[in-house]
Design a binder for these strands. Structure first.
Lengths: 188, 188
DNA sequence: ACCTGAACACCGTTCAAGT
DNA sequence: ACCTGAACACCGTTCAAGT
């Protein structure tokens, strides 16, 4: 009985990735194990290697899966301040859906390409804010790391001791306010 | 021959921690292994457990070792803007000495207590900047996560493809400028 | 083409035994 | 008190064999 002992349809890469993501969401990245994942799928550990090159490739697949959902909100012609706030909120919303994976991504950015949608939208917004072209990349990187740093701190906080939900939201608003105000002032 | 087969003096906790830090600096946190550490010390892996409860405790020890070196510069009476810049630079300097450990700490903040020296200095500076008392904690956390997020992004960048040293320095200055300007504006 | 079992080189850690 | 070897329950991964 070597051919699919597992009940139901044959194993698929899609199924592997979504199950891996579920394991990560439930127990952190360290809870994702080739052997545990196989058990979760009722399959021999070695079967996974027919759909995924190795564990690194598996993690990359999971990261792409999530990053693909990171799309900038459509650009209504609103002021750059509001646009910036909207981008930050979009980023934060997705990060909060998968906090463990997101922390992992921040330390292992090679797992994802530059998520072009968000990065492009950010740059356009910064230009609208009057950031000079030669400062564009540096400014974008600074803001990007600000937001991702804040969100990481936030999710690790949530795993730890609790705080009121309205409390963290307020802190996030304050953080975004500082960024917006800082940009306004910096660009004259 | 059960008693210290190892040449020289008996094993010490200090020696264990500094060697562990060296391994982490050289190869990342995932390169730190009880067995490899023991080999590095020319000692049986099990001997480590007489000085350190387990691997988690070992990592905590290494983190404390590094965090202990994080001291705010003495408070000359300079303007809060300069003081804020100085604090950011101090933080960044230490982080760049141990980038791998620092990334790890950001994801596992339970490894360190709130490093009271820096946090206290930050709060005093924010008060001097006119941040209202009820916003103090939120503002401090925001700035703290901004700087740590930026520094993490920076160190992962350094491990990857190179950039000019003066280029990253300039980006850091720009980042700090945004924060300072944002604070100034926010607090009226 | 897809799956599997046995095997290898690693982990962290326990425990009983050595001096 | 400090160290050690054997052992256990895990890892990721290779490889030859099954259908």
């Amino acid at each position: 009985m070597a051919s699919h002992a597992r009940r139901g349809a044959p194993l698929t890469r899609e199924e592997i990735l979504t199950t891996a993501l579920r394991l990560i969401d439930a127990g952190g990245v360290e809870a994702l194990t080739m052997r545990r994942l196989a058990a979760e799928l009722s399959v021999n550990p070695m079967s996974l290697y027919h759909h995924v090159e190795n564990k690194t490739a598996l993690l990359e697949g999971v990261c792409s899966l999530v990053v693909a959902r990171l799309e900038p909100p459509p650009d209504d012609g609103s002021a750059w301040q509001d646009r910036l706030r909207a981008l930050a909120h979009t980023y934060r919303s997705l990060a909060r859906l998968h906090p463990a994976l997101w922390s992992y991504v921040q330390v292992h950015p090679e797992m994802i390409g530059r998520e072009d949608g968000m990065w492009g939208a950010l740059c356009r917004t910064l230009l609208a804010a009057g950031v000079p072209k030669e400062d564009l990349a540096a400014t974008g990187e600074a803001l990007y790391s600000f937001v991702s740093g804040f969100v990481t701190a936030e999710s690790r906080d949530e795993l730890g001791r609790q705080r009121g939900a309205e409390d963290v939201d307020r802190t996030f608003e304050l953080a975004v306010d500082i960024i917006v105000a800082g940009l306004r002032r910096t660009t004259g």
